[in-house]
Design a protein around this nucleic acid. Structure first.
Lengths: 140, 140
DNA sequence: GCTGAATAATTGATCACTCAATTATACCGC
DNA sequence: GCGGTATAATTGAGTGATCAATTATTCAGC
C-alpha cells in the first residue's frame, strides 16, 4: 500500500503553504505585524463599516473566538484596532480598524502585493485560472 | 489600492490549507497521532534505511531542529520511533520507525487516503494535473 | 595534529493557538 | 414575563512550535 494520489496532493499543498507562508511573513515583520495580523486588518479594512464582530472575524480567518481575543489584545494596545460596543446586542464587542491601523495596513498591503508578485512570478494566467477553479471546488 | 491577484491567490491558498488541514487531522486522531506525526512516520517509512537524521526530517517537514526534538520525544515514549546512533558521525542521532510505528502508520495511511479521497472528490484529473504543475513551478 | 569554523542536537524562554469552563446577554415557547 | 437554550466573549491550562544559547562533535587549513 502507498499514499494515494489525493493524499499526495494534500501533502504537496501543505508543503506549498508552509514554504510560501514563511516567505511572505518575513517582509511583513518590517511593518511590525504577523501574517495573521495582516489578515485581520485586511478584513476590517474591507468591511463596509470598518468594524466586525469578533466571532465573524474568527470565522473568516480560521481561528477560534479565543484565539481572536488573544490576537487582538496586543493590536489594541498599539492602537491598530479599537473596541466598539454593539448598540443592538450587548454580548457583542465590535472591533474596528483605527486611522493608524489603516495607514499601517496600506503600507503592509503594498509590501504584501510585492512579495506575492515575486513569489508567484512563475505562474501564468492559465495557472491562476486553474487554481481558482480548484479552490472554488474545494472551499464550497 | 487593493490586494493584487497574486496576493489574493496566496490568501486563498492559506484558507484552503487551513480548512483541509482541519478536516484531515480529525480522522487521524482516532489513531492517536497528529498530522505532523503522520508526516514523520511517512518519511521514515519511505526512507530506504527506515531511519533519518533529525535535521533532514526537520527540513522535509518544514520544522526547526528544535521542533523535531520536541515532536519526537512523545513518539519515542510510546514506541513509534526509536533513537539510533550514527556510526559515522557522533553528532547525529538517527531516528528510526519501529515495528509498532510501522503498523500504526499503515492503519493511519489507510485513514488518510480515505479522507483525502473524500475531501478531494470534487477534483477531476485536469485539476490534479494543473495543481501539480503549479506546485512544481512554485516549489522549485 | 591543532585551532577555528561549521554542523547536529538539545534546552530554556516565549509565542500563538486550542479546548473547556465561565460570564453575560439575547431569544423562543409557553 | 419566565425558564431554558443558544450565542458572544473572555480566561486558565495546556500544546506545538519558534528563537537564542549551549554542548558536542566534525572538518578544513596550516
Amino acid at each position: 500500500m502507498a499514499i494515494s494520489q489525493d493524499a499526495a496532493l494534500l501533502l504537496t499543498l501543505s508543503n506549498l503553504q508552509t514554504q510560501l507562508f514563511k516567505k511572505v511573513s518575513g517582509p511583513l515583520t518590517a511593518h511590525g505585524i504577523s501574517f495573521t495580523e495582516f489578515i485581520v486588518l485586511l478584513h476590517l479594512n474591507d468591511s463596509p463599516a470598518r468594524n466586525m464582530r469578533r466571532i465573524d472575524l474568527a470565522e473568516k480567518i480560521g481561528l477560534t473566538a479565543s484565539g481572536v481575543t488573544r490576537l487582538l489584545n496586543p493590536m489594541q494596545k498599539i492602537g491598530l484596532v479599537e473596541k466598539e460596543e454593539s448598540v443592538r446586542d450587548a454580548r457583542v464587542s465590535l472591533i474596528a480598524i483605527t486611522e493608524a491601523g489603516t495607514q499601517l495596513f496600506n503600507d503592509a498591503e503594498r509590501t504584501f502585493n510585492e512579495s506575492a508578485g515575486h513569489l508567484l512570478a512563475p505562474l501564468n494566467a492559465k495557472h491562476h485560472r486553474a487554481f481558482s477553479e480548484i479552490a472554488g471546488a474545494l472551499l464550497s
